[in-house]
């Protein structure tokens, strides 16, 4: 018995040592354009996010030991794919803003930094005070301009274009979801004033969704439930009245835990502008949807707090 234990232990040690030679490449990529932010804001982001969300990854000695290294390398690769502060220049100003608000929301909802990562890397944790600094910074970047002429013009242009618009075929998203024009007949289940990006939204639910709300069966939502979220520019006048400007997009979430098993049971689609252009470069656009909705995993991935009518 003792001999067997000895052999087993030696085998384990040899295996662990050999594992050290398998090292997936995480790459030391260049910094094309680093995030620009006030020093106190940037210090928090560098400390909490940069190991996985930049090309300036700082691995500790214990990160480099296999099999831990495999997991760390995968975190870093995934992290950079979703958000990379070292290639900040590659994003449009709108996308930069969007990414920052999303990042702070991920932190606030407890989805980031990943719990197992923050447990070992205690310096990655974001305290309440840190979070307040980040939120204050973002609030300071919100500027609502009354009578924004560019936005007024954008609306006017869409009104003019509407007359000669005659779409024959319904557009289809890259993951095979056909645009549902009927959403306009559905019940409103909420609205959202998105001051982070200057839009306002109306969220509709189909009959299945509305029935589920009435019966309090919304976690998980039943198969067949569909939401549509329509978004417009916010147009503000000098008295603080905000009305809908140019139509931005309509997004759908369709619940089907078999058909859409791979995307957490939901089919995601987004159609942009009055031309209803399907969003995304390829079918992998859903990775963006999933990653943003991930903090809502205890609510069946739904952000909306539905209203009963």
């Amino acid at each position: 018995m003792k001999k067997f234990m000895l052999i087993a232990a030696s085998a384990m040690i040899i295996l662990l040592i050999s594992l050290q030679f398998f090292r997936p490449e995480i790459g030391h990529l260049s910094v094309t354009g680093d995030l620009q932010a006030p020093a106190n804001v940037k210090a928090i982001l560098v400390r909490a996010c940069y190991d996985c969300h930049s090309n300036q990854t700082n691995l500790r000695w214990y990160d480099q030991i296999q099999p831990v290294y495999w997991q760390v390398a995968s975190h870093v690769r995934q992290g950079r794919k979703g958000l990379n502060f070292s290639n900040w220049d590659k994003l449009s100003p709108m996308d930069r803003k969007g990414k920052l608000w999303e990042a702070v929301n991920q932190i606030e909802q407890g989805a980031m930094p990943i719990k197992s990562y923050a447990f070992v890397h205690s310096d990655a944790r974001v305290s309440k005070q840190d979070l307040a600094v980040l939120k204050n910074y973002l609030i300071g970047t919100v500027h609502e301009t009354p009578n924004d002429t560019a936005k007024l013009r954008a609306r006017e242009k869409q009104v003019q274009a509407k007359a000669d618009q005659n779409q024959q075929k319904l557009p289809e998203s890259l993951n095979g979801i056909t645009y549902i024009p009927d959403y306009k007949n559905w019940q409103v289940i909420s609205t959202s004033d998105r001051f982070d990006n200057g839009t306002m939204r109306v969220i509709y639910g189909n009959d299945v969704a509305v029935k589920a709300i009435k019966e309090h069966h919304i976690n998980p939502w039943p198969n067949g439930a569909i939401f549509a979220k329509a978004a417009w520019d916010k147009l503000e006048d000098e008295q603080g009245n905000v009305t809908t400007g140019a139509f931005k997009q309509v997004e759908f979430m369709i619940k089907d835990d078999i058909k859409f098993r791979q995307t957490n049971g939901w089919g995601f689609a987004r159609f942009k502008t009055p031309k209803l252009k399907p969003y995304g470069k390829d079918v992998m656009f859903t990775a963006e949807c999933i990653s943003c909705h991930k903090p809502m995993k205890d609510n069946d991935f739904v952000f909306t707090f539905p209203i009963k009518n």
Partner: peptide, 14 residues
């Protein structure tokens, strides 16, 4: 009346 959205910092909901 609007209230802050507990699920999204940056949004106000009914």
């Amino acid at each position: 009346q609007q209230q802050d959205d507990a699920h999204w910092f940056g949004a106000r909901i009914p």
